[in-house]
């Protein structure tokens, strides 16, 4: 997760949207899961929806060193 360096090649659409797509999928699973059931379904929901939050924090923390 470093900044771009000179000469970095242009990314393809797939590269740009790879991680966002994965996060979108996890969020969607998280949103639906708790609706379907209780107990384990709730837990799945919490974990899935935590991913984008934690990744956001991770990307911002990484550069503070």
């Amino acid at each position: 997760m470093t900044s771009a360096r000179p000469g970095v090649r242009r990314k393809t659409i797939g590269q740009v949207f790879g991680i966002p797509l994965l996060m979108a999928l996890l969020s969607a699973i998280g949103l639906v899961s708790a609706l379907v059931g209780d107990g384990i379904w709730d837990s799945v929901s919490w974990v899935m929806l935590l991913f984008p939050i934690l990744l956001c924090g991770y990307c911002l923390r990484q550069v503070q060193k």
Partner: peptide
């Protein structure tokens, strides 16, 4: 926003934060 995200990120890695 999703559409304009693409050109904005063409030369950056995901999650780039230029501190």
């Amino acid at each position: 926003g999703i559409v304009v995200y693409a050109p904005s990120m063409r030369k950056l890695n995901f999650g780039a934060y230029r501190r």
